[in-house]
């Protein structure tokens, strides 16, 4: 039963990733990513990582995906929504991807790591302890990063900085 659910979630993950990779419509690609992200949260639960799974949904679905959809909706005006994400240079990309994939499979097959049978534990409290003891410096640095981020995003979208040029006409001949 557990294996069956795992296989379903894995299939959904792969399906979402492939939709993101091969869809010609940017909105479908974003939806595929959404599917993949939610399914990966499901995989985290299989790995006894409930806190990370919930964080994944909170931050990715509630934050990143909404931002990406915002970006798509604000920037795709006038385009044909079914072909605004064309695939260019598929052959070299396939080659490189295959190389990476084979490399990954090779590494997995010959890693020689010893694996234990994983145990299911409650993680929330211990993650808190780890964040505030072993990883206190990165944790604080992340907060600095987020402050920089807020300031940076604010500066970037300031009115004076954006030099509104004459909007160039869309080049027709060029793809």
């Amino acid at each position: 039963m557990k294996d069956g659910i795992f296989l379903c979630i894995a299939a959904v993950t792969v399906f979402g990733a492939l939709v993101t990779a091969f869809s010609r419509s940017i909105i479908n690609a974003a939806l595929g990513l959404l599917l993949a992200l939610v399914a990966i949260a499901g995989l985290y639960i299989f790995l006894s990582a409930d806190f990370v799974a919930v964080s994944q949904i909170l931050i990715y679905v509630g934050g990143v995906m909404v931002l990406l959809l915002f970006g798509i909706m604000l920037t795709s005006g006038g385009d044909n929504i079914f072909s605004n994400n064309p695939i260019m240079g598929a052959v070299p990309a396939t080659l490189i991807t295959t190389i990476f994939g084979l490399l990954g499979i090779y590494v997995v097959n010959t890693s020689g790591l010893t694996f234990y049978q994983g145990a299911y534990r409650a993680t929330t409290r211990d993650i808190g302890h780890f964040l505030l003891r072993e990883y206190i410096l990165p944790f604080e640095l992340v907060s600095v990063l987020i402050v920089v981020l807020i300031v940076g995003a604010g500066v970037m979208l300031r009115k004076e900085l954006v030099i509104v040029r004459q909007a160039p006409q869309k080049k027709e001949g060029k793809k």
Partner: peptide, 30 residues
Amino acid sequence: LILAIIIFCAGIFTVLTRKNIIGILLGIEL
């Protein structure tokens, strides 16, 4: 691990083949 490789390869393929900046961003997220 194999699943992660598949997702990673899909991400690489997305990044390499797209001209749309948001498309590239989607690949990076993967």
